[in-house]
Design a binder for these strands. Structure first.
Lengths: 244, 244
DNA sequence: CGGTAAGTTGACTTAAGTCAAGGCGGGTGG
DNA sequence: CCACCCGCCTTGACTTAAGTCAACTTACCG
């Protein structure tokens, strides 16, 4: 049932850096199985110290933190190729939760093997650090957006980011991409109320910039979107990223 | 002039994990010099690809991102023991700037040597990843705070965080710690306007919770501070961290 | 068919932002 | 030595973006 790493369909995407046959063999040994989860399931829980690490093979989800008050901050939208559980791997405990919003397929790694990567495969270790540094970078950008920009700009920025990510993975069809989330999720990601999020989306729709139907977002005007986001437009050039 | 690593005064702090004599020798080889910078100097610039990496030996600073509009998001306050320039090391380009707010002393490493750490010193490579993952964790917490909490709670949270960090480094005297920043810096860190930041500080002062004089913050009531921050109080237990 | 979960919209409230005026050192140069 | 300026902090009066409340529509599902 589990796909051998050498045939991993994700590797066909060209944002992922190519690896040698030998490295594939190693990753294959590291892989302990495959996991399929239903929409709505929690993969990782804040405070837990999951014995497993995952790479997303298919499906989407979200990372978030919850407050005792019930408020929630969505930290990131999870796409195929993302590596989950690094915090548990490094620090022994997750500091956020991860939930599937569509059905997801995950490649499961055993945490006990984790340090062996560092010992025997410096290039992979480097890749893991790269991923961590990249996450850090994106979180910083998100913080700057949420901390400094008004609602429309935040929204436009988020849509651009999602579009670019989806495009890099070949998930777009023309100008639209899958958006299997609720408005509440987007609201929690941008630090806005649900109602205000809805009204902001309506504004983008009315201005013929972007619209959201049937779990898909369609960008009607990339220029308009970039303008709404303020500057910060560039950036779309995808760097190739490692796939663990 | 440069202090040999074995005598590095920071190593005396017990938040930093101990290292063997042999590892010290390696770090010593990696170290290419020492740098002293004046307050107000830019150490690293967004968009640059600094050929150097730094560990902060003394002094404080801040990391921030600027927008074309002139707005600024402070991502983090920099303390001794922090490792700077990882993004440039991994991705070839910094995505934020770092500025000294006091005089700082930095331990300089050569970026060309960077990959050798991964190749020959898996434990150090692991430490670097640990640092990256920890930064990611803190940014996530900051994002959640800025995205979800009202002004007083943000402020209280920030003060607690600063106090804990300073305490772990032995920089506190009783209930006060050095705060060599301007209110504008704090405002930019919390996503608040300068005026509102000032009024929020006044509120904490009036409630006898915390006050700010002569570049030092004094906590009058840790309990009151924790209460103002909402929950999220715990956390004060310092994990030991690696020092590169 | 009810029942529930998500999206939409309008009316009203409020936290936070903006504007503007002073205050308080600390330098510097006439 | 005083006067002026400059950067930072402080405060009050007013504006506004965003939040809250609440009603109503869909759409899906057993």
């Amino acid at each position: 049932m589990p796909v051998p790493c050498r045939n991993c369909p994700l590797r066909r995407c060209d944002i992922f850096a190519p690896v040698t046959e030998q490295e594939l063999a190693f990753l294959q040994r590291f892989k302990s199985g495959e996991l399929k989860v239903a929409p709505g399931m929690q993969l990782l829980m804040e405070g837990s110290n999951s014995p497993q690490l995952y790479t997303v093979l298919a499906g989407q989800g979200l990372r978030y933190k919850t407050f005792a008050s019930g408020r929630r901050q969505v930290l990131n939208f999870v796409f195929p190729g993302d590596f989950l559980g690094l915090q548990a791997g490094m620090m022994g405990e997750m500091h956020h939760s991860v939930e599937a919003t569509t059905e997801m397929v995950l490649c499961v790694f055993d945490r006990k093997e984790f340090f062996n990567i560092f010992r025997h495969h410096p290039e992979r270790a480097y890749d893991i650090t790269w991923l961590a540094a990249t996450e850090e970078h994106f979180l910083g950008e998100t913080l700057a957006t949420v901390g400094q920009l008004p609602a429309v700009a935040r929204m436009a920025w988020a849509l651009m980011r999602l579009f670019n990510r989806a495009e890099a993975l070949g998930m777009t069809t023309g100008d639209s991409f899958p958006m299997p989330y609720r408005q509440q999720d987007l609201a929690d990601a941008l630090g806005l109320s649900l109602v205000h999020t809805n009204k902001t989306l309506a504004r983008l729709r009315d201005h013929q910039i972007a619209s959201w139907h049937d779990g898909h977002i369609k960008i009607h005007s990339h220029a308009g979107l970039a303008e709404s986001a303020g500057e910060e437009a560039g950036e779309s050039a995808w760097m190739t990223r490692p796939l663990i």
